[in-house]
């Protein structure tokens, strides 16, 4: 471990380079020298990219945006672990003080059938959007809401809902799962809405709809490894999966698809 202060370290990074979806891709080794231990992991990649540009090589493509751990854009395996494996930390919040001179670091994109690689470390996560579009919402047209305090929500319920709603949709759970399952993501969305009174009217329909969409998107099934929970940068508990399974079983017994003819509400 580096000492405190602005220590500089020299590392080697093996980065997954893949021109496009069709390219087989490969790991390429780069030396990155003089990285401050206060830099974030993505800032280290910035430094590498500046080096590449100076040499006339195309920089490494990677998704990133807010760089403060909330937008869910970053999506890379670092030494085989989503976001690098520091507890409750996204790759953009991982700092180089966790590494030391001489370290060899392997950086790869999410690996999952439902997340095809677009380029280098960038993957296509629109499967998540399709799952939410299938039912991950409360039907409440703008303008139709009662006063916010008309629905009293016990603090414990609001807190539970919040804990599940903290999911940033990054896909680390899928990348961590040996089956490429999205159960933690999907169940977190459901748990968020189902701990609130607003989520009750559509509860079983929603569960059935999003689970169906999840299967259709090509995500695998859960076989209780719980790697998802360990990898989640927002510490979402695997308990949400049990909640979802319970509702899904219930829905299978008593839920009938709502009529699409006279509904008009979507």
């Amino acid at each position: 471990m580096a000492k405190s202060g602005h220590d500089l370290i020299d590392i080697k990074v093996h980065v997954w380079r893949q021109k496009d979806a069709k390219d087989p891709g490969k790991l390429v080794k780069y030396d990155v020298a003089g990285v401050s231990t206060h830099a974030s992991f993505l800032e280290m990649l910035d430094i590498l990219n500046e080096q590449l540009v100076a040499k006339g090589e195309e920089p490494v493509a990677f998704d990133h945006d807010c760089r403060e751990g909330i937008c869910g854009s970053c999506s890379m395996m670092i030494n085989g672990r989503p976001h690098g494996g520091q507890k409750a930390t996204t790759a953009c919040q991982l700092h180089m003080r966790l590494f030391r001179t001489g370290d060899e670091i392997y950086v790869e994109p999410w690996r999952a059938a439902a997340f095809p690689v677009i380029k280098d470390l960038v993957v296509d996560r629109t499967a998540f959007d399709r799952v939410i579009a299938a039912g991950g919402f409360v039907t409440a047209n703008c303008g139709s809401a009662p006063d916010a305090n008309d629905n009293l929500i016990p603090k414990e319920h609001a807190d539970k809902a919040f804990e599940a709603a903290a999911c940033i949709g990054c896909g680390a759970c899928v990348a961590a799962c040996p089956n490429g399952s999205a159960m933690l993501f999907v169940a977190a969305k459901l748990s968020h809405l189902h701990h609130l009174p607003q989520g009750q009217p559509e509860r079983l329909h929603r569960t059935s709809a999003v689970v169906t969409a999840m299967d259709a998107a090509g995500f695998g099934n859960c076989s209780n490894h719980y790697e998802c929970e360990a990898a989640c940068p927002k510490d979402i508990s695997r308990d949400v999966i049990a909640e979802m399974n319970k509702d899904f079983a219930k829905a299978a017994f008593i839920h009938r698809d709502r009529s699409t003819k006279a509904d008009g509400g979507g």
């Binding site: 916010a148 009293l152 929500i153 016990p154 603090k155 609001a158 809902a161 809405l193 609130l196 607003q198």
Partner: peptide, 22 residues
């Protein structure tokens, strides 16, 4: 004032007091 109502109706988990109010 309408915004808060709308967001609550959509299931935004705002912070609550023990009695259930916002």
């Amino acid at each position: 004032v309408d915004i808060i109502d709308q967001c609550a109706a959509m299931g935004v988990p705002f912070a609550r007091e023990y009695g259930g109010t916002l």
